[in-house]
Amino acid sequence: MSLLEIRGLTTEFKTEQGIVKAIRGIDYTVDKGEVLGIVGESGSGKSVGMLSLMGLLASNGRVTDGTITFDGEDLTPSNLDTKKKKKQYEEKMRKIRGNDISMIFQDPMSYLNPIVTIEKQMTEGILYHTKCSKKEARQKAIELMKKVGIPAPESRLKQYPFEFSGGMRQRIIIAIALACNPKLIIADEPTTALDVTVQAQILDLLKDITKDTDAGVIIITHDLGVVASLCDRISIMYGGNIMEEGTSDEIFYEPKHPYTKGLLASIANSSADKREELKPIPGTPPDLLKLENECPFAARCSEAMEICTKYNPLVTEFSPTHRCKCWLHCRDRYKEVVKGDEADE
């Protein structure tokens, strides 16, 4: 059984303009020791899926459908209609957050509390989740700081976040995430705020950690370069859907979805002839407020057919690991979706 299994997850946000369906029935599985990369542009729902899992959605957000199973336990936050159920769910999640599942966030500047020492911030989770003394927690914090490559950890524990550089802060955040030996680590754009040479350091650290621990890792990013070097499997999101999922070789060398293909063609690659013009995807990402049941990419897709503008495509499997959500690959199965008179066309 997989460590994490998400089936048909749907999350909505109530806004003044109407209901935004941020994710529309997504499936994920992550095994122990596996690195899954979730790639998508802003608004594709890549972060919302993980926030739904952690129960950290903003107050106007709600999981309306789907199931989440983590390590054999049901973590689905739907049907929280009574206060009692809400409380039970909250208590369950509190035991899991920072313990079995931990998160690494994008911005190391705003994630750490600026007026609390590093020691307190690092030991807080350890003291909450494990039975140990302050001294033991401190010892554990020092070990963790050594592990993530922070020199002179004893003296640095007493310092405040502003005394650390961006890369060092990100190391602290990784150390905090590792504190309770999590089974699953979710890293949301872990290197976006960092410089190239520091990014390489942090990616190396993440690679070592995934090798050392048996934890499953989910990396959320918009940078195809980051997932190429780090991930076993990659999932491409667009407009709240998973458009394509496969091993990193399948995604990079045998992309099936027009969006994946477009994305790969639109990035500059130094090995290609530089005088070759880039091939951008025309148009702009969809407005999630206006998106109905159609394929979210249909408006920008060069191969869109009539059916694409009306019905969300079915999933086609190319290999046990490779699946793609596009009508181009499942044209003959349209009758499963299209009913009645329309089907005759």
């Binding site: 980051v226 190429a228 070097s229 990079f252 990035i267």
Partner: peptide, 17 residues
């Protein structure tokens, strides 16, 4: 150190950290 969007190149690339 610049990440390359190509798994094979990324594996072969010798990175100076």
């Amino acid at each position: 150190a610049a990440p390359v969007a190509d798994p094979k190149q990324a594996k072969e690339k010798k990175r100076i950290i």
